[in-house]
């Protein structure tokens, strides 16, 4: 044990994943008392680059890495703190995550499962090169870990979503779980609007933003492998369901992914809206997807073709 105490009033099982901090999520998802942190805050591994931008550093650089147990199973874990610098990949945060995954590759005695609690806008611009390169290193390490038989599961449901390098990182993992509030993509709506104009993407239109990048659409089109309720128990259950039988990282898997992505492009390439895509998927009342509760969504999603696959 690191002996690190954290606030625990918000980590009851029904607490919102979206609203929780990264540490609360770890406490909420792992078996009680099982979390052991590597390079904990007391070691003060901070970014040396933020001060020149007059920005405060954090004692963990917004990246918490360690190990714990999930329903009795040993797992390695990494969690991004989306409230600190948008959970961004940077020199320290990226190095910690890279170290964790490389340790799993090098030491077969370490747990054969890694949970990535992603909550990140992508690369930290104040450390842009280090952050970008960290993502590249992490993506490479993830596929090497997968080749070594490690299941790498991404959990997406935090306030910063998983964009930019975090979006690519998620799609490099063996599996992805996402909640209704989870958002997954590359370029965020604000950046598209700034660069391409409001007629391309109105970032103020919350319903539009949600339909394009949100968890339900991602799950329906096979961009995520499990749909989690926005609670600690919800993500715990989703993670457990995804840890077993991850797709192998091999030619057959990537050929299947090629086919899957080409098919998606052919099927939805002309769609103007996500609702149109959901209609093509055979959902009787696609307009209703937005407002139904989680149980109703899971029920109508159950029959959708192509949603469950090993092509990742």
């Amino acid at each position: 044990m690191t002996g690190m105490m954290i606030r625990n009033e918000a980590t009851v099982a029904s607490a919102s994943w979206f609203l929780a901090s990264a540490r609360e999520r770890l406490t909420g998802i792992l078996d009680p008392g099982s979390f052991v942190e590597f390079l904990p805050p007391s070691e003060r591994v901070r970014s040396p680059h933020l001060a020149q931008f007059d920005l405060p550093a954090a004692f963990d650089d917004g990246m918490i890495v360690g190990r714990g147990r999930l329903d009795g199973r040993d797992v390695l874990v990494a969690a991004q703190e989306g409230q600190f610098m948008g959970g961004t990949f940077a020199e320290v945060s990226g190095g910690k995550l890279l170290g964790l995954i490389r340790a799993a590759i090098a030491d077969p005695d370490l747990p054969r499962s890694i949970l990535l609690l992603l909550d990140s806008g992508g690369v930290r611009l104040q450390e842009a090169n280090a952050g970008e390169l960290a993502v590249a290193e992490v993506m490479r390490a993830i596929v090497e870990a997968r080749s070594a038989g490690v299941a790498v599961v991404a959990l997406v449901g935090g306030r910063a979503g998983a964009f930019g390098g975090a979006g690519l990182t998620a799609a490099t993992c063996s599996r992805i779980a996402i909640s209704e509030q989870g958002r997954l993509g590359v370029t965020g709506p604000e950046v598209i609007e700034t660069n391409q104009g409001v007629e391309e993407f109105d970032s103020q239109d919350k319903a539009l933003v949600w339909s394009v990048t949100g968890g339900r659409s991602r799950r329906l089109i096979g961009g995520a492998d499990a749909y989690a309720e926005d609670t600690m128990t919800g993500f715990r259950a989703a993670a457990l369901a995804l840890l077993d039988s991850p797709p192998p990282f091999d030619l057959l898997t990537l050929q299947a992914e090629q086919e899957r992505l080409a098919e998606r492009h052919a099927l939805f390439g002309a769609c103007e809206s996500a609702v149109e895509m959901w209609g093509i998927l055979g959902i009787a009342d696609p307009e209703a997807v937005r407002d139904m509760d989680d149980a109703a969504f899971v029920a109508i999603a159950a029959g959708v073709k192509g949603m469950d696959h090993d092509a990742r």
Partner: peptide, 11 residues
């Protein structure tokens, strides 16, 4: 006798 604790986030 807690040895250390962390509260809050840098936001």
């Amino acid at each position: 006798n807690a040895r250390r604790a962390l509260v809050g986030v840098v936001a």
